[in-house]
Computed example of a mutant assay.
Amino acid sequence: MTTATPYPIGTPGVPWGDEERAEWLSQQVRQRSYQDDVLSVVEGLSSRFDVEVYGHLDYGADQYPLMAIRSRNWRDELPVVLITGGVHGYETSGVHGALRFVEQHGVEYADRVNWLVAPCVSPWAYERIHRWNPDAVDPNRSFRADSPAGESAALMALVAPIRDRVLMHIDLHETTDTDESEFQPALAARDGKLYEPGSIPDGFYLVDDTEHPNPDFQQTVLAAVEPITHIAPADERGEILGSPAAARGVIRYPLAQLGLCAGMTSAPCRTTTEVYPDSPRATPEQCNAVQVAAVCAAIDYALGHR
């Protein structure tokens, strides 16, 4: 079954060209501030942690420094863990959960791991509450050589020197109702495909790696977040967001093959969180707390299974 109402930009069945992308871009409106919500928080953390600009995005009138935070005094004998948020800028708790982890637990873990946090990979999209960058490119399908997304290329360059040392990588995401109301229809229109409506999972779930699954790791993270939020059940077909459930609250994607952020290293412990902020049982505070709990559980597991 396909949607009865075509997406308002483009011709059904015809991929977008420059004209359609320009029309789409003209409709994107800045709704919040990267400076206020992210940069100011990062600046406040700089007295306790190492802060660096790892890249710069130049989108005409919009200029964005890309910020990373590191535990201070890295030690060669300690393992490295990577925390990323805001790869999809509209997924709010990924950004604020990453920052909150640093605020609340950064010092606590600094003598056990070298941690690196990129809290808002896609600041243009964060401000516009969108999934794509201004070129209508999804950064979370762009973690590959010759990346078409500056956001992804900059993060890969940051991680490159430590790529083979990363023990754990957790990428913080959300699945929202707007995935079905806006972003999936826009994707189909952009690519000249028919939009096939789906359903949004009601609750938290994780994305494991098809090629290198780590089921015990995934279940440990799920157990840590369940006291805070509910776990998404599989639908009547045994699927979550159109993918077969590998276990309760877990699906699997070929992370590297799809160019996903969580596949950018060969870390033995890696996952993508998917918080459901539109649930009537979830608040922004709970969503942020869930992300923090997931990060802490992921690090603890990785340290215990080296």
Score class of each variant (00 low, 15 high):
A223L: 01
V42A: 15
V38N: 09
R237E: 15
L241G: 01
W124V: 06
I162E: 07
A4W: 05
E174P: 13
E91A: 08
V81Y: 05
L258P: 00
V250W: 05
C269D: 02
R100V: 00
V137R: 03
L25D: 09
C287G: 13
D235H: 05
G17H: 11
V292S: 05
E274L: 10
D138R: 01
L255Q: 14
R100S: 13
A267W: 02
T271Q: 03
L78D: 03
I231Q: 07
H212A: 14
L57E: 13
H230S: 15
P215E: 12
E23S: 09
L158H: 10
D146W: 04
P123R: 12
V51P: 02
F217G: 04
R190N: 04
A98G: 05
T220Q: 14
T175M: 14
I251C: 01
H56W: 12
T175I: 14
G89V: 04
A245H: 09
W132K: 11
H230L: 09
M156D: 07
H212M: 09
L258Y: 12
E274S: 07
I251W: 02
P244E: 15
Q104M: 09
G89K: 03
D179S: 12
F217T: 01
S142V: 01
V51K: 11
R248I: 00
V117E: 11
H130N: 12
P201K: 09
V102C: 08
T273K: 02
N140D: 15
D209R: 05
M264N: 06
C296D: 00
T273P: 01
P119G: 08
D177Y: 04
V113K: 04
L258G: 04
G10R: 10
I9A: 08
L155E: 03
P284K: 12
R141Q: 12
P148V: 10
S46C: 05
A289H: 13
Y34I: 03
A262Y: 06
